[in-house]
Amino acid sequence: MPGKDGQIILDLSGVLAIDNAGTATLVGLWREARDRGAVLQLAGVSGAVLQKLNEFRVSSEVVAAPKPAGVWESLGGRSWHGLQGVGEFVVLAADVTVGAVLSVLRPRSLRWAALAQQMSLMGSQALGIVGLITFLIGLTLAFQSAYQLRQFGAAIYVATLTAISMVREMGPLITAILVAGRSGSSITSEVATMKVGEEIDALHVMGIPFVDYVAVPKLLAMVLAVPLLTILADGFGIMGGWVVGTVYLDIAPLPYLQKTIDSLVAKDLATGLIKSAVFAWGIALIGLYYGMGVRGGAQEVGRATTASVVSSIFFIIVADSLFSILFYVVLG
C-alpha cells in the first residue's frame, strides 16, 4: 500500500515463512526504492520471517560492476595490446634465435637429449600423417590436371605439373600446416602448462635459462625436422601423381619418372626447403610466444593453443605469398 512522502509499505501479514531468496528479493526492492527516492517499509512481519531477516546479512560495501568498454575504447585497447604483443614477440624471437645460433656455434652447450626427443616428437612421429596426406594431395592434383590435359593429348605433362606444384608449393605448405597443428599446438600447450604450474618460475630461480633449456631445443628441432619432412612430402606427392599417371592415364612407369626428373630444377627444391625452414622457425616461435603469454589458470591453456595454431597458419600463408613474389617475381 502507498504511504505518504514516497513511503511504500509492504504488508507481510500473510507471509508465514521466508527463505534467503525471498529476503534477498525484499532487500533488492528496498535498494531500488531508495535509488528512486522512496522508502520501503514492511508491516505485519511474523516471528519466523523476522528471524530470517535478522540472519540475512546486507553488505554495506557495494562495488560497481566494471563498465564494458565502448567501441573506440576497446578498439584502442586491442590495438595497444596488439602493438605490445608485437614488441614482446620480437624480443622473444630475437632471444631464442640468438640462443639457437649460439648453441649451434658451441655444440657442447646444446641440450642434445632434449633436441633428440623434440626431433622425434616433431619429425619421426609425423612421418605417417605427412606421407599419407601428401600422397593423397599428389593423387588429387594429378587427377584434376589429367582431366584437363587429356583434352589436349598432353597427359604426360601431368608428371611435370604434379612434380612442380608438389616441390615448389604443396609439399612445404601442407607439411608446415600439419606441423603447425601437431607440434605448434603442443609447444604452446606444454609451455603454457609450465607457466601455469610455476615451472617457468622454478627454472628462473634455479638459474637455468628458459631459452636454453626449453626454447632452443624446440626451435632447432623444428627447423631441422620440417625441411626433412618436406622432402618426404615431396616424394609422397610425386608418388601419388605417379600412381594416377600409370594406372589411370596408362603412362609407362619409367617415362613418367623421367619426365618428373626432367621437369624439376635445383632451384625448385632449394626454394621449397628454404621456405619450409622459415615456416618452421615461425611455427616454433609463435608456439613459444603464445605459451609464454598465458596468465592465470588452466582454462587459458586451451585458448592460447587455439590462438597459436591460427596465427601459425596465418603466418605460413602470408610468408608463402611473400616467398612466391620474392623467388619468382623479384629474383625471376
Binding site: L26, V27, W30, Q41, V45, L53, N54, R57, V58, E61
Partner: peptide, 12 residues
Amino acid sequence: STDCSAAELFGL
C-alpha cells in the same frame, strides 16, 4: 562493522 542484517535495514 557497517554491515547490517536485513531486519535492521527495514528498521525492524
